[in-house]
Design a protein around this nucleic acid. Structure first.
Lengths: 189, 189
DNA sequence: CTCAAATTTCAATAATTCCTGAAATTAGAG
DNA sequence: CTCTAATTTCAGGAATTATTGAAATTTGAG
């Protein structure tokens, strides 16, 4: 691996993180490299920069494409394929959240829903089913919230981010939340 | 494995999910089993129920304890150790989020912060650093929001959940959010 | 204290996942 | 079309991770 030190530490960190998240180290490194690259890279450049085999790069890119984290493009007068990540970090985050939702949350909700339709055949099953119900409700609630946040458009987000005075904004957000939950309590009382 | 079918499908699903999340299959299954169990279980009961070796159970429990996902207790007149999961699903979710924050988010923020303090030695490094800055800001923003939601207390949450008419509540929440972002736009204009 | 039950550790091996080079396929320039 | 550069596939070996049984340690009842 022959990269500027700044880039190298980023790439290595992402590799480690990747493996904690069930993504393999080399795929994590590939993503990180593309993320900080000034210009799109082709597979040979990536193999060279990271010191992996060409075929490993090919498989990793396929994986990254399946997560929609990487975009493919062509350079005029060059038949090789060049890859890059989207510029907008918020869009990247949303894509990641959508994919995880689809791959992990949805199947779990489906499994739970099916379990909840069964007739429990014993006290143990009755209890298990009740627990699954609690989990279902929580996941459903949290992912709805998450979805709401995700639906914030890029412009709004960029504005928030560029203002820099995030703490301010977060405090306002917190206040809304507090107001919201307080009004619930009043209704409930 | 000799479990009621409802429990079995839940346990197996969690095992699969676990491996996607970098947690190993057997640890995922152990957690799932405890989660739906009516009463605390000891290690032998778990080994029996899941068909794993006693030593595997021991290591898995250590892992689960390090995540604070499992509590240890003793039964009167029995010297074996019994394990269970907390009842409150919201508390479980918060614990998980806290641990991930500590293990994954904090180290990443630290790495990024350090990278941002370096003086870039080239245009490539300059660009990489700018990208890292964008990532830093986003992670910081998202985790703050997440922290706010996490800080909602159990009672409020339980109220929301038990009301059952979640969709209603979510719509209200969405409205607050929309109001919030709209007022930002006005200020910005 | 003692001793047996309970738990943990750990080295060996089983299982899985990763990575590669060689071969096959695809695709675009001429 | 043809021919070659570019990419993908895939079987085999490398590396990592998971699981076990046996031995060591810990714990608490008596």
């Amino acid at each position: 691996m022959n990269l500027p030190p700044l880039v190298q530490s980023f790439v290595l960190h992402f590799g480690e993180m990747g493996s904690r998240w069930g993504i393999n180290r080399t795929v994590g490194q590939m993503y990180a490299l593309l993320y900080v690259s000034e210009k799109p890279l082709n597979a040979d450049e990536m193999a060279e920069a990271l010191g992996f085999s060409r075929s490993n790069i090919s498989m990793g890119l396929k994986e990254l494409q399946s997560w929609r984290l990487v975009r493919l493009q062509h350079m005029p007068g060059d038949r090789r394929e060049y890859y890059s990540t989207p510029d907008d970090v918020w869009a990247i985050f949303k894509t990641l959240a959508e994919e995880r939702q689809k791959r992990e949350v949805e199947p779990t909700l489906t499994m739970l829903r099916e379990a909840l339709l069964e007739s429990p055949a014993s006290e143990a099953e009755r209890h298990a089913q009740a627990r699954m119900g609690e989990m279902y409700t929580l996941i459903d609630l949290v992912t709805s919230w998450f979805g709401d946040i995700q639906r914030l458009d890029v412009e709004t987000l960029q504005k928030l981010m560029k203002l820099g005075a995030q703490v301010q904004k977060i405090l306002e957000f917190k206040q809304k939340l507090t107001a919201f939950t307080r009004s619930e309590e009043e209704k409930g009382a």
